[in-house]
């Protein structure tokens, strides 16, 4: 167990990170992500209101649809990444644990007079991820199995009122399920009794998302990185790019037009030595040009993998770079992400 954003979190269960990781890719893993913030934004037109604070095209969402976005600052930097779901009368927003107090304050203040912001402290959040996740949940509710990727339903699972989204942080098909606190333990025990399901800790959550090329806030994304540098422009629609109207819009629009100075890239170190976060990246002449922001070992590929930021001129796939691991330059190459193919449900 380790402390994480004020919560005691399991890094691993007795199986260990590699087995937990491979189990999630092969069957189904259950993650307790209750530390994340669950927030309701309600008002006359919350979809329009929240666009003042985030660049996501929330007005384009129909009830039951959801979108990945981020809170930005006036410099276009990312204050947190989040998921916004449009429900019939309001928005259901899931934010990172370490940022939730700041996010709630920001939303409350930014939307004052238009929308109210309420944290759902009475609900737990779990993720069931992996190729068998849908088959497991189909035993409890037939409609869950046919939900499209990035959609939301309120469903009673075994008599428990759940908010279910078909989404996740592993690159696999899967679900995140919000459950009333008092029913959470019983619900998890029931899922863990299913033959395909095992509990998965923070360690494998990190290696799974890294293989899938997904960013971790506070590491790959910070208030100093823009969505353009981070390669997250896909999350800003044409309308929002043109109209702006969110913090830092001018900076982001200028970066779109003129290209960013740095770019987030995938990196494959040669050999077996992992390159960890904060490892310096150099060019072949030895000049420091950037830094690894996430790095570790890929249990699926059995090789080290990493992501980091390099100048635009070094960002094409196949570019040779060096990584200073314990002071020694080790060769590496800029590589395509995701490292392991994403297998989201496309119907």
């Amino acid at each position: 167990m380790v402390p994480f954003a004020g919560y005691d979190m399991p890094v691993q269960y007795p199986d260990g990170i590699i087995k937990e990781h491979l189990h999630t890719r092969a069957a189904a893993g259950l993650f307790d992500v209750s530390h994340m913030g669950q927030v309701i934004v309600s008002g006359a037109n919350p979809s329009k209101s929240i666009e003042k604070l985030i660049p996501g095209d929330i007005q384009a969402l129909q009830p039951g649809e959801m979108r990945y976005s981020f809170l930005t600052n006036d410099n276009g930097g990312i204050l947190d990444d989040l998921i916004v779901t449009r429900r019939e009368g309001d928005l259901f927003v899931v934010v990172n644990a370490a940022c939730k107090e700041q996010d709630i304050a920001l939303l409350t203040e930014g939307l004052a007079g238009e929308a109210s912001v309420t944290e759902l402290t009475d609900r737990a959040l779990v993720a069931l991820q992996g190729p068998k996740a849908a088959a497991v949940l189909a035993r409890y509710s037939a409609e869950i199995a046919s939900m499209p990727f990035m959609s939301f339903r309120e469903v009673a699972i075994d008599g428990v009122a759940c908010f279910v989204t078909r989404s996740g942080y592993t690159g696999e098909d899967g679900y995140e399920i919000s459950i009333p606190n008092e029913q959470a333990v019983g619900f998890c025990r029931k899922l863990l009794a299913e033959p395909e399901v095992k509990p998965i800790g923070l360690g494998a959550r990190d290696s799974l998302r890294l293989e899938a090329g997904l960013c971790l806030y506070g590491h790959d994304l910070t208030e100093k990185t823009t969505p353009v540098a981070a390669g997250l422009l896909w999350a800003i629609s044409k309308r929002r790019r043109e109209e702006g109207g969110f913090p830092g819009a001018a900076v982001i629009q200028a970066e779109i037009a003129n290209k960013p100075a740095m770019k987030r890239v995938g990196i494959l170190p040669e050999g077996r030595a992992p390159a960890r976060e904060h490892t310096e990246i150099t060019d072949e002449a030895g000049n420091v040009i950037g830094e690894i922001t996430s790095g570790g070992f890929s249990p699926s590929l059995e090789i080290p993998i990493a992501m980091g930021y390099v100048p635009l001129a070094f960002s094409s796939i196949g570019t040779k770079i060096n990584l200073l691991v314990r002071g020694k330059p080790r060769p590496a190459v800029v590589a395509k992400m995701p490292f392991v193919e994403q297998r989201y449900y496309r119907g």
């Binding site: 890094v11 691993q12 260990g16 990170i17 590699i18 360690g203 077996r272 030595a273 992992p274 070992f297 249990p299 080290p304 314990r326």
Partner: peptide, 8 residues
């Protein structure tokens, strides 16, 4: 330590 993946 858990699963060892590299030893220098």
């Amino acid at each position: 330590l858990g699963d060892v993946v590299y030893v220098e």
